[in-house]
Design a protein around this nucleic acid. Structure first.
Lengths: 202, 202
DNA sequence: GAGAGTTTTAACCAAAAAGTTAAAATTGTT
DNA sequence: AACAATTTTAACTTTTTGGTTAAAACTCTC
């Protein structure tokens, strides 16, 4: 029972912080939502900031290895790109609020976020190696020559952005969660084909 | 002098709301930053919410016609795409915080935002017409056949997303504002070429 | 059933922030 | 100079929110 409540609090807090950000999250609401009282909240987690820090750290612990892991596979550039897109979108379908969470708190808590990113610098080589292979295959003529960082930005944009705008998107186009999910499923294959077309040498 | 102060307050409030969002913005900070006192703030704008609403409305009045206007030009699909990318990125270079602002307040004030979007439904045909031409040229074989809404999402992603992640991006890659600006300038031409490669029929 | 650990109750405190007020001071206009 | 409009001053109230406390109640284990 004890760890149950402790865990329940953490998961409820996660939902609130991730969906609403730090400033807009109320301790009372977390308590109400978890069906417990504020006193217990502070019994387990001393303060709002400590609770938030824990969520941020756990989120980074979860996401960074996923992204990095998706970039360090073996094979040709397109084989690696396929894994990256496939794995990345799959994780985001499961956790669609995380990109927005990370972005929301940039302005407020940029220093904290950047520190968390820097703490995980051992994952940086994954992105490096992915970029290097892109550059190599461009030089070998297997891919059309273009600015690698712009291409990288394109890949990131096209995978992550839909999840960032999801709340507007689904509302404006009157989609439900399942419509969006299946559009993102379709998107895995589509994005790879799209990138192949764009990067194929003339 | 009178309208000066009124205007100064509005512009200062705009900066704060746009950069920090509603919840994290303090009326006192707006007053301090504008070099006036809180009393005057309420003398002109009755409450925080009214002030915020005004900023949101003005922002939408500014952005929606810009985006729509960029989509309704004449010419071939690629001519129209060129204008869209060129105009859209130019506006965002001038107002890099706006995409983030709009996104930040989705979760909190989604209803307000969606209402503001719906109020401007007379601009929807612009996007419609842009999509229609894409579909037409796909059917004529001038463009490779692919899901039009996915292509549209790609265009939006690649134009807007860089501005959303700009704060992390510049920090992590130790860029300054000018580095970012020139990267976005380069991006105008790059994106068009990229899209041409991706959409060219085999 | 004794005792440790957990949870609730209910009231409370302190700080932050929004908002109000009234009088005085300043500025602009004629 | 007189008057109206603007702006400041400074103290104040109210609301919201994070955080605390102490006692009681409950639960689980031995």
């Amino acid at each position: 029972m004890a760890e149950d409540k402790e865990h329940l609090i953490l998961e409820t807090a996660r939902r609130h912080f991730v969906q609403n950000g730090y400033a807009a999250t109320r301790m009372q609401e977390i308590a109400d939502d978890a069906g417990i009282n504020k006193a217990l909240l502070h019994y387990y987690y001393r303060s709002k900031e400590k609770l938030y820090d824990r969520i941020l750290t756990e989120t980074m612990d979860f996401m960074v290895p996923k992204i990095a892991g998706a970039m360090i596979s073996e094979g040709t550039f397109f084989e690696r790109l396929e894994k990256l897109i496939e794995q990345y979108i799959s994780v985001l379908i499961e956790h669609p609020d995380i990109p927005f969470f990370i972005l929301t708190e940039i302005t407020q808590r940029k220093d904290k976020l950047v520190a968390e990113i820097r703490n995980r610098s051992h994952h940086f080589p994954a992105a490096q190696s992915f970029l290097m292979q892109m550059i190599k295959e461009m030089e070998e003529g297997k891919l059309k020559k273009m600015p690698p960082h712009q291409v990288f930005l394109n890949i990131m944009s096209m995978t992550v952005f839909p999840f960032v705008v999801r709340p507007v998107f689904t509302t404006v186009f009157q989609q439900d969660e399942n419509d969006f999910k299946s559009m993102m499923e379709e998107r895995k294959k589509f994005l790879l084909e799209f990138m192949k077309g764009a990067l194929k040498p003339d």
